[in-house]
Design a protein around this nucleic acid. Structure first.
Lengths: 251, 251
DNA sequence: TTTCCCAATTGATCTAGATCAATTATTGGG
DNA sequence: CCCAATAATTGATCTAGATCAATTGGGAAA
């Protein structure tokens, strides 16, 4: 099946789903997201251009490859999977993204999105029009700095993934993956030890370059050796030190 | 051995090595490098801040992890290997860079370099002081655009590497590697079919997540099947189509 | 030129993780 | 609530590529 914007259903704008107009000034993510370190008056400028979009349901796409690049997207709640399709139509996952994280940077150069971005669960997000952002960058040095930092951060994250993929065993890959989630959730103020896995085992395997069966077996092994518990989607870390040790320097 | 700036010898500034002051305006790489698409008058501003450093010899480091981040580096001639050391002190190669390419982006966020960058052969480069670059970005919109494009490009390149590392066979990895070099050399105006490999087999393997022996065996196989010839460091592509086919969508 | 030292190649064997296969949850649609 | 489709687990086997081992080749120093 070819995926198009048309066959990914948008949630109806029913009042129950209609989020209040959220501003960067009051957003709980402002210390993680784009606004980090910006002064109040600059935040207002940002608020002026950022479009606080209505939530979309699980399974909907934020963008598709080939769409004209207009905006970056900041995640407010929920999670996103970014992937491409290879020559055989096989999904190849590039990353999972959570609240406070910004996606779409890889489209800047090509002026088209080159990946698929799909909501793994009900998703609310802010749309960041890139042209306008560029203008504000030129105006507010702190904001330009912050943009460069975000881009740089994305590059660092991918360096880490590169090292994980090319030099680690299945056990290490999964430990690194879990610790990465744990750390990101902790930053968001959630528990670092008990959390929900919004993606399937299949998707974890795909992302880490492992077969599903291997992911499942490593989870079973980690349960047996009391590193963690995982029941369906709920994961709880029982021996953080041991997991951390498996990660080596990463994470 | 711990690597420090001190034990990487700088080439003496002997007249034979002293390069003429090269400006972006006259540089043959200006259509690939930072200046791409900039108007003459803006190029002059760029020239004013860019430091055209004296060449360094093979084996010298451009920067070390932990050094304060001051500058990006644009390669003028020669090639650079960027790597980190893992917990066991093992080298982990992040990338190889050639003329017209810019390195150091991953340091912006941390304000420290996080990788090693070493010259694989005699290297000439331009030093791009980041603070000053930021100022020019705010002044010249085209220049800001170009900076964003370069960062975005780096992210795309790493996406490609991620896909290569996690989903490809040894044959495919090597084909992708060779085609990537071929394409980059072609852009520089060099032959796309005959070129020099500035890195060792060991380094190719490290970069692609393969053992040296595997790299050697795949080269032998490619020679046997007439895809290419490789004698020591000189590689010549004999069947570009077949190599391209092995790459799938990449490159 | 000779010697030393790595880099590269080639062969033999081993193993982590893939693939194939079967079974048992789970989930979502009607 | 039921059923069909899908996700996850577990077991058995296979294989690409790692590892171990030995040999060859080439370049730099004297």
């Amino acid at each position: 099946m070819t995926i198009t914007k048309e066959n990914t259903k948008e949630i109806a704008g029913r009042s129950i789903f209609r989020s209040p107009r959220v501003s960067c000034v009051t957003c709980s993510l402002s210390e993680l997201c784009l606004p980090r370190g910006l002064k109040k008056e600059n935040l207002d400028k940002l608020d002026y251009i950022i479009k606080n979009s209505p939530p979309i349901a699980k399974g909907n796409h934020l963008y598709l490859p080939g769409d004209d690049f207009k905006s970056l997207f900041a995640i407010r709640t929920g999670s996103v999977k970014v992937y491409v399709l290879d020559k055989n139509g096989e999904e190849q996952i590039i990353g999972f993204y959570f609240p406070g994280e910004v996606i779409g940077f890889d489209a800047i150069n090509k002026e088209k999105y080159i990946c698929y971005a799909i909501a793994l669960e009900t998703l609310s997000y802010c749309k960041l029009p890139f042209e306008k952002m560029s203008l504000i960058c030129a105006e507010i040095p702190e904001f330009q700095d912050q943009m460069f930092r975000l881009l740089s951060d994305e590059i660092s994250t991918e360096h880490d993934l590169i090292l994980t993929l090319s030099k680690r065993t299945a056990d290490e890959k999964l430990a690194i993956f879990i610790m990465s989630l744990s750390n990101r959730f902790a930053k968001l103020g959630y528990s670092s030890t008990v959390f929900n896995l919004p993606m399937s085992r299949q998707e974890i395997g795909n992302y880490l370059g492992l077969a599903v069966e291997t992911v499942s077996r490593v989870f079973t092994k980690f349960k047996r050796t009391e590193l963690l518990d995982v029941d369906k989607k709920i994961l709880s870390i029982k021996d953080k030190d041991a997991l951390h040790a498996l990660c080596g320097y990463n994470k």
